[in-house]
Design a protein around this nucleic acid. Structure first.
Lengths: 195, 195
DNA sequence: AGAGTAACCGAACGATCGGTCGGGACAAGG
DNA sequence: CCTTGTCCCGACCGATCGTTCGGTTACTCT
């Protein structure tokens, strides 16, 4: 029983199209008409696969959040010196962000207009706090410079990492995911580590 | 002839309200009904002051762009060693971003759905290129590390700076504008400068 | 007081929004 | 062959979109 169906849409394949359009036009700027044009099926047919526009958003941001939270469960993020665990998390965040680029992009742009968006914002805050605690622990160990506030540094580092979604394009072979992860890790840790 | 009118709206004061709402709900997610509620006047009254929704966006992003471009004309951005001019521009970008927070926030979120948005994106790209050339010159002087591509570093630095709009709130006395500018400049330059 | 005008309003415009509905095309299984 | 269920469609729903319009209020100037 292999998946030998006709080339028809599933909720997953439809999501791929929807997320692309959401990122191009913004979630609010995307109508179901836009989605139907991009998917090549009628507007009403979309409702055969998903309950509506918001379910597509929910599926997309959930996927991104799950991948990000999974980083914190990895071995190198749980054991070892705090500053090294932080380095691992930073590197993996960049890698996940690039591997799941459209989904993370959408996640980082939600504004909180609907219940789904507010739920996503809340989970994002949870994740941020977990990483902030890592940086705080590294500071307590004396492994990062003391002349920049931990809270401020966390936000700036997140800002740099998250900004990748604004310019990274996998098709344009400017820099591979690994190269970007290297550069970010080097730049951030060089700026943070105790001289 | 001082401006001793009644407390009535002008295009400028209306813009202040509109930009606030745009940032809360997103431009596409904001209806003229939302604006009228926030401004305390009727929907149709808004059209007495401005030609429509898009003019408000145009005024806002123009203001942000003008302030940013003005940085490049400042003396410290035009004379001296490239790496020092870069440091000055980075610091001033943070300061302008904080001083004109709502306007720059809106600018950084345009997606390109309308002609106005596409024009804003183009001017932003111009600004980015100007700063990238500064970093390139500093690299040619041997003042910044050579193991990170200039193009990549530019984008990451812009990412860190621009991310400030996502969390900085002037009313919450967490860190003053100057403190943030200090931290960013230190973090960025420590990561960039040749060891 | 009267004229002029800036500021504002409620009602309504056509267009588009997200979503619903009844039914048709088509492949699979008997 | 006929049923069954998946997949899809055009037509349409009430609501809301950005915008327009005719008209009223309220302030300024003479």
């Amino acid at each position: 029983m292999t998946t030998a169906k006709r080339d028809t849409y599933t909720p997953e394949t439809l999501l791929t199209v929807a997320v692309r359009v959401f990122n191009e036009r913004g979630y609010d700027g995307t109508s179901m008409e836009h989605l139907s044009k991009a998917a090549g099926i009628s507007k009403s047919s979309i409702y055969h696969h998903v309950s509506g526009k918001e379910e597509l958003l929910q599926r997309a941001v959930s996927r991104a959040l799950d991948e990000l939270f999974a980083i914190l469960d990895e071995e190198h993020a749980r054991a070892g010196r705090s500053v090294d665990r932080l380095e691992h998390v930073v590197r993996r965040m960049v890698e996940v962000l690039i591997a799941e680029l459209p989904y993370v992009t959408l996640l980082l742009r939600v504004r909180g207009n609907t219940a789904t968006e507010r739920w996503a914002l809340e989970r994002r805050r949870d994740f941020d706090h977990r990483v902030a605690e890592l940086l705080k622990a590294a500071a307590a160990d004396g492994d990062v410079r003391g002349d920049i506030e931990v809270r401020l540094a966390t936000r700036l580092v997140f800002g740099m990492i998250n900004s990748i979604v604004e310019w990274y394009r996998p098709e344009a072979r400017g820099a591979s995911g690994r190269e970007v992860a290297d550069a970010v890790t080097r730049l951030v840790l060089a700026g943070l580590r105790q001289a």
